[in-house]
Each structure stands twice: as structure tokens, then as C-alpha cells.
């Protein structure tokens, strides 16, 4: 019974990792990576490491996800640069700001 659960968990991990790395859109990649992080937290719990499971759930799934999504949004073409947003506004930049939502 445990063996089946282990195999399901491992298959899920490998599948999610492969999907993360092969997804077309970078955004889907990031979301799949966050899901992989949650599955890895489950794997830590299975392997008798609850300390690491807590840390992974908070960091791997939470903070890394927030960081990656923030960076992704910043790297979008047409994103308002912080300095240009602070100092100059034009219709084009307003449009870019709206498009981010």
C-alpha cells in the first residue's frame, strides 16, 4: 500500500517537473513549479522530515512563487519601469500599466 503511494508521489513529481520545464508559456511554467514545490513538501513529509516539509511549503511554494511571479511581471515587454513610472507618464505607459492587471 505504501509502495503504491510512493510510486504515485514519485510519478507526480517527475511529471510535474517535466511539465514545468516543457510548458509553452513561462507563466504556466512558474505555476507548475509552485505545484511541484507543494508535491515536494509532501515527499519530505513522507520521508520523515516534517521540519523540511514546513520550510518547503513556506519557501518553495510560497516565497519562491511570489518572487518568480514578480520577476515574470517585471520582465514582460511593455512593463512600466519603476524609474520611468516615477518620473514621467505618457499615454503609452498608462496603457502598459493597465495591461499588467
Amino acid at each position: 500500500m505504501m509502495l503504491i503511494l510512493d510510486l504515485v508521489l514519485i510519478a507526480g513529481l517527475v511529471t510535474f517537473a517535466t511539465l514545468t520545464l516543457t510548458a509553452r508559456a513561462t507563466f504556466s511554467s512558474i505555476v507548475l513549479f509552485i505545484s511541484t514545490g507543494l508535491l515536494i513538501a509532501l515527499a519530505w513529509a513522507r520521508l520523515g522530515a516534517p521540519d523540511i516539509a514546513i520550510a518547503e511549503a513556506a519557501i518553495g511554494a510560497g516565497l519562491t512563487g511570489a518572487l518568480l511571479l514578480a520577476a515574470w511581471r517585471r520582465l514582460q515587454p511593455g512593463t512600466v519601469d519603476p524609474e520611468s513610472d516615477a518620473e514621467s507618464t505618457s499615454g503609452e505607459q498608462q496603457g502598459a500599466g493597465d495591461a499588467k492587471q
Partner: peptide, 13 residues
């Protein structure tokens, strides 16, 4: 680049 960072993270995991 973003994907490469993801790949390195998966490596680390």
C-alpha cells in the same frame, strides 16, 4: 533566463 532559473531550482530539489 527565467526557465533556466526554474531548471536550476529543480536540479537543487
Amino acid at each position: 533566463m527565467l526557465r533556466r532559473i526554474l531548471a536550476i531550482n529543480i536540479m537543487g530539489n
